[in-house]
Design a binder for these strands. Structure first.
Lengths: 232, 232
DNA sequence: GGCGAAAACGAACGTTCGTGCTATATTGCG
DNA sequence: CGCAATATAGCACGAACGTTCGTTTTCGCC
């Protein structure tokens, strides 16, 4: 009903040239919204950015709320492409858990979104504003938290992480440290915050790593390139 | 020039009844802004909440930006009263550091501001919006971070915390965990997040506490009442 | 009790918001 | 080519925004 990516049953093969502009509108929308907020993302502003008329652009979505929802989902796609997918190139275990955190921090540092983590900003903006947009944001962030938690469990199953640690607790802490780094970077431009978050995360990973797990972690948090897969 | 609290040189003793309404406007403004954001805090909305006319209310501030600045400073006063002052009743050292974190979490949990931590929301809203408001918010959050850092240093001076730990690093981590709890509570209503943050903070404090420091920390993170000053 | 200042009001300003309508380009298919 | 569907533009709307202005109410003080 909504996620029309590429799953039409071949009955309607045409209708492609509206979809394309819609997509490029959403690219701009995501960028704009990450900086000015999902509510500050105004249709007039977006239209002038796209050199389109308000009404022409508006017709693609039908309402502002639909535009916001589409923007959130577009941001989710970017997040998956920039963070999840790269981290999942590493096979499950302690290193993938680390990669998830490391790449997340890199994605904020490198300014994939103009205003830092799109979802951190969106969550904070909508957390007191009930409705479908808020629900969708919460859902997506829950996906992320689950991914983090799942990575912890997998690392335990692989025998690289002590079984005593609570996966939800660890996921909470890592997510908090990431949000903290994002916060410090957005507010102060403090790049050191990334190193602080990495230090804190690595320290926890090291403390709870088993003997076989300790080897896979990078030796320092400074360099961008981790040491790579050493174990096995 | 601005902070006219109660420091007039007795030349002008009158002029109190405008200041009072101004103060009560700001109370409402703080509450409103914490939920709907500093930009969503609209003059018309605020006026109708106060049962005043837009123009009558407006005259107290002269511009929306001035209103926002005054609101931010009013929120700072609340924060000092609700968090800083209570924590500073405990004498400097490891316990005060813990109190700062513990009370902060309580202040979010108990809903001192309708939308969670006022400054977490404001920082996120204004971090991509240069200007005096953003600067003031950043300044206030820096005060908080400094307070946290200072508490770490004091705990070290008191011989209750290992001197090896980096005060800025610890302040960063604690602040991040607090923001993380605030985030989880606002978005999911997840009260468990407070316990998670407390656990994480306490664990770090315990790990780096000296022998003489270990005694002052509470035995569990569950109860609201800490064990109290046991050492010395 | 009346005077002057401070405080609150009501109406209007120009702008921008989201959202409808209607008409005109643009395009894919027979 | 011509036709139908789609995509974009133009225009107008009611509401809300921050702000200004001139007037009216309130209130401390002589």
């Amino acid at each position: 009903m909504s996620s029309g990516a590429a799953a039409r049953p071949a009955t309607r093969a045409r209708k492609a040239h509206g979809e394309r502009t819609r997509q490029s509108i959403l690219e701009t929308a995501v960028d704009l919204a990450s900086a000015e907020g999902l509510e500050g993302l105004t249709i007039g502003r977006l239209a002038s950015e796209m050199k389109m008329s308000k009404s022409g652009l508006f017709a693609h979505f039908g309402s502002k709320e639909e535009l916001q929802l589409a923007t959130v989902d577009a941001a989710r796609e970017v997040f998956i492409r920039e963070v999840i997918r790269p981290a999942f190139e590493t096979k499950e275990g302690l290193l993938r858990l680390w990669k998830l955190c490391d790449i997340w921090l890199g994605y904020v540092h490198d300014g994939v979104f103009r205003g830092g983590c799109f979802f951190a900003a969106a969550a904070s903006e909508f957390d007191s504003r009930p409705g479908p947009v808020r629900d969708r944001i919460a859902e997506i962030m829950k996906e992320w938290l689950s991914t983090l938690r799942r990575a912890v469990v997998d690392a335990q199953s692989a025998g690289q992480l002590e079984r005593g640690v609570d996966p939800s607790q660890l996921a909470f802490e890592f997510n908090a440290l990431e949000l903290g780094a994002n916060w410090a970077f957005q507010l102060y431009g403090d790049r050191q915050a990334f190193a602080r978050a990495r230090d804190a995360i690595l320290e926890r990973l090291r403390r709870h790593a088993t003997k076989s797990g300790a080897g896979v972690l990078p030796t320092t948090s400074k360099g961008k390139k981790g040491r790579g897969v050493a174990a096995k």
